[in-house]
Design a protein around this nucleic acid. Structure first.
Lengths: 190, 190, 190, 190
DNA sequence: CATGAATGAGAGTTCATTCAT
DNA sequence: GATGAATGAACTCTCATTCAT
């Protein structure tokens, strides 16, 4: 694939992402994507042959970016607490944003495409593992209490994952979200 | 509506529920319901005029049943711990794939039908309030530690709500689910 | 058909007429009639087997009534002018009424049912003949100028017939309608 | 829209017009048009999204053509009488079943689409105004008697309009139509 | 490579008509 | 006689997908 084609593909992914954020996964049609990208119906098929393919491409890219962000944070930030808060804030922002995130689309997608669930599990395990690393890091630095990081990291991951999904519907105010996060993290901090 | 019609409506609701459980909400068409019920295309419209209407009818019925189940538990069981575990088990059963639930469909429905979100909020508040009552009951009986029941009940409710949504995809084994529930409840029990 | 059945049929015709006045002919369904009459779907079929049959029954009744009305007028009223004006006013009322008359339905019906046009022609000829009688009566009484009543009566009939159809759409104010009627009749009056 | 698409649109309008002439407006379905044009169900929607849209497009084109025809006549013909007769003949042709017209469909359309009636009124006023200009022109040339052209032009317009509607059903022979036109115009000619 | 016109399957919805009760 | 539940055909409209240009 040439440079130009590469650029075109980028453009499609970028515009499509907005569409998925707005409409979830199930309701997005090839037409929606075509309209959002300002390309021809046939043209889209040169690059992607279904909404599913477009979606998965975006999903993998996103997952990589998030993982990288935490990685970078761990090198740049000093304290484990700061890193943990930073990581959680990425999710908190999603919970509160008026324009909902890709989370809905992700949920819908994996619900519909049972055969792709392994990918979703890997993503969850990735988040879980990242948090565990942060917790271990904090315990090593004697910032955090000695907890079972294996179970605890999953608890946090599940919580963030669940909140991101339900908040767009339940619409908690920020104060109440903070309240929950504090309670969740309370056993960690000395 | 006569007795026969009432029975027919029951049948439609029962069969449709299975469809919603299998396919979520967005992907269910009137034709799916028609096929599942073995009635004619036009026949369905005598009872319901959209998948939304069918869904909401089922949803309200379900909500009533769940609420009643907890109510009964509170009267029949002795200790607060038993009541709490029982309540949580209703959700735990849903989390485990053996008994797939309406949770997916519920999530999809309220995502798509923003104008009906109030119903979902009431449902969540109901769960939250129920848990709070159980916690207060346990503290009164000196079974439970003195925790902030207002914040804590919401934490549990969010957790159950989120798990029910994500478990069908993440597919935790029962042991791992129990692990999480234990951790969640650990600050409560003396 | 017994007395009760006769009454029922009357009721159906009366209620249906309102429906035809409101919705014309083409847009009226058996369901509309059933709803308007408060009877069962199947019940209607005991009396009439199509909207066409209902309509024609009403049409024939109406035609009889109108003819009778003019007949009576000719006996009761004194001058030919009064009789003519009275007859025309029946149509003028239809032109101006907010609730449009059966005229639309009649038009639609005969447009669709070419095989029944003979009926419509008889109706028109009836109106035409009635007017001719009035004109002859007026000439005999030396109230009216000596005109070709055969051609002239058709002119008036066509005019009334056309106006009744177009006025609901063109919506002339009463003054302008009167203006036209005066001009139409001007060659008659001495 | 490219040249090809333009041609296709022309084709659809041309074929649809025949359908409207045959079936009026209310009874025409998108399927009828699709069948008449030999295109696919979806294909039609690329050009028009309802029978209403197809109809209005044809209607506006027709109106333009008729207006132009009279315009041309006024420049080419010499006497006012000739121009008037020519104009009336356009309508007379429509009245005679040999050349069935869109008049039925027009009537049905504006009956059903009350919100578009303004268009119909403009059309009528246009006809009325055109006739008035011809009458004024004739009076100026001392061809016609001095009549109230404002009221008289409306009388002629109403007559033509009404006749076009009712003739397809009443089916007057040409001689009788001419008889009526002569009577209508008799006060004009010296 | 890219276009966009065209197709046809399939969803929603309405109604005339029938028929067991 | 009367009911109204049920059927199935017909209609509108939308999209994924193809293909000639």
């Amino acid at each position: 694939m040439g440079r130009v084609a590469e650029k075109k593909k980028e453009l499609i992914l970028e515009r499509s992402k907005k569409v998925f954020i707005e409409k979830g996964f199930a309701n997005v049609t090839m037409k929606d994507i075509v309209d959002a990208c300002g390309i021809s119906r046939g043209g889209l098929y040169l690059y992607f042959s279904s909404t599913k393919e477009v979606f998965l491409t975006i999903f993998h890219k996103e997952a990589q970016l998030t993982a990288d962000a935490v990685e970078v944070a761990m090198w740049e930030k000093m304290t484990a607490k700061e890193i943990l808060i930073d990581t959680i804030n990425v999710y908190k922002d999603q919970m509160m944003s008026q324009t909902p995130s890709m989370a809905h689309a992700v949920y819908e997608f994996f619900l519909e495409n049972a055969e792709e669930r392994m990918i979703r599990k890997w993503q969850f395990d990735g988040l879980s593992e990242t948090i565990r690393e942060i917790l271990d890091y904090g315990i090593n630095r004697q910032e955090f209490n000695k907890i079972n990081t294996s179970v605890y990291s999953r608890q946090i991951a599940l919580f963030l994952d669940g909140m991101v999904l339900t908040m767009p519907v339940l619409e908690f105010p920020e104060k109440r979200i903070d309240e929950q996060i504090s309670l969740l993290l309370s056993p960690i901090f000395k």
